[in-house]
């Protein structure tokens, strides 16, 4: 039972994280991640994007997958084993080797006072990834996977590297333990446009050549569309739409995803916006809202949305959490849908 073979790399089911917020004597519940579900298969590595705005719960979800945060309820399994049940010893010996993080700011991830190759050797030593005499060769081999060489970085301090190089180092450090899953939380949002694509392309190569799955957490839908296979769009703790990236971003169904896609500023004067958007006034309104959390801003809001939580509906090759696509509302929704399309063009 212990090492049950599993075709699933990561299984997330009904995953919920509740934070308690105390105001004096009253305590309020805050559902940062609410009933999230998705699965990554082990057989075929993929890049799975979790996209959302700030406060959507995407980082909390990533921290739970990394074992840094305890889920309040729900299932979170890595290769068939519950992450929450692992002892610290097991985590060190197995889980931390298998699942590695890459964070947003590479310069915050490395101490400015330490030489950067120190982190590589330390990781190899801690996880006993290579014999002492073979360490240099092993480190060099991994660095080449991210487009660097040991000669380039040996003895350097973090400030001597460009943002792109430093982020590559962070990825190289993660790759040293030969992980099956890399959790990358906004890995390119600190990088300049001219360096960003080199790191994004590197992730794509890693997936193809090293067979690493990548959980890519981002607010940037354009890079997600560029290199991800599947995407889950989060809104205030909910996954509102999940499916293949060409479908979800190519022709979004959920009104929120539609709004999100519309709002990406494109560097193309022919794609400038024509319509206006409504913004939420207060941040916290939407978490505590009854019914659908997007009801306050949704252009297609119906009565039922205001008091009942929408179900997850399978429609057009993806899952979408919206009443518009349930059977009883599908008939009403069709004209609304075409109205959106015509107003966008």
């Amino acid at each position: 039972m212990r090492q049950q073979p599993s075709s699933e790399l990561l299984r997330v089911e009904n995953l919920t994280k509740i934070f308690q917020i105390r105001h004096g004597f009253s305590t309020r519940e805050f559902r940062a991640v609410d009933d999230a579900a998705f699965t990554l298969t082990a057989a075929k590595p993929e890049i799975f994007t979790i996209a959302g705005e700030s406060g959507s719960g995407k980082t909390t979800l990533a921290r739970m997958v990394l074992g840094m945060e305890q889920p309040s309820s729900g299932i979170l399994q890595y290769k068939g084993r519950n992450i929450a049940d692992l002892s610290l010893g097991e985590k060190r010996a197995w889980f931390f080797k298998e699942v590695q993080p890459v964070f947003q700011d590479p310069f915050a991830a490395f101490s400015p006072l330490k030489k950067i190759d120190h982190y590589l050797y330390e990781t190899v030593h801690n996880y006993k990834m290579a014999k002492k005499s073979e360490t240099d060769d092993y480190v060099n081999e991994v660095l080449q996977q991210v487009g660097l060489t040991l000669a380039e970085v040996r003895g350097r301090y973090p400030n001597e590297l460009s943002g792109g190089q430093a982020q590559r180092m962070a990825v190289a450090r993660a790759l040293l333990t030969n992980p099956s899953l890399i959790v990358a939380d906004e890995p390119v949002s600190m990088l300049d446009a001219s360096l960003r694509m080199s790191v994004v392309n590197m992730f794509r190569d890693l997936k193809e050549q090293q067979q690493v799955s990548i959980l890519y957490i981002t607010h940037d839908l354009a890079t997600a569309y560029y290199f991800a296979d599947r995407i889950a769009v989060m809104l205030r703790g909910w996954i509102v739409e999940e499916g293949p990236v060409e479908k979800v971003l190519g022709s979004p169904l959920h009104p929120y995803t539609q709004n999100l896609k519309e709002s990406i500023p494109q560097a193309d004067p022919d794609h400038a916006w024509s319509s206006e958007v409504d913004l939420a006034i207060l941040d916290t309104d939407e978490y505590t809202r009854k019914g659908c959390r997007y009801a306050g801003r949704c252009p297609h809001v119906m009565d039922v949305c205001r008091h009942t939580e929408p179900p997850n509906v399978t429609a057009q090759g993806r899952t979408v959490k919206c009443f518009l696509y349930t059977e009883e509302h599908a008939a009403d929704a069709a004209p609304v849908q075409s109205a959106v399309d015509s107003s966008n063009h």
Partner: peptide
Amino acid sequence: SLPRLDDRSTRVS
């Protein structure tokens, strides 16, 4: 080098 929403071809930096 900018990623676009209507094109997934490889972009070089």
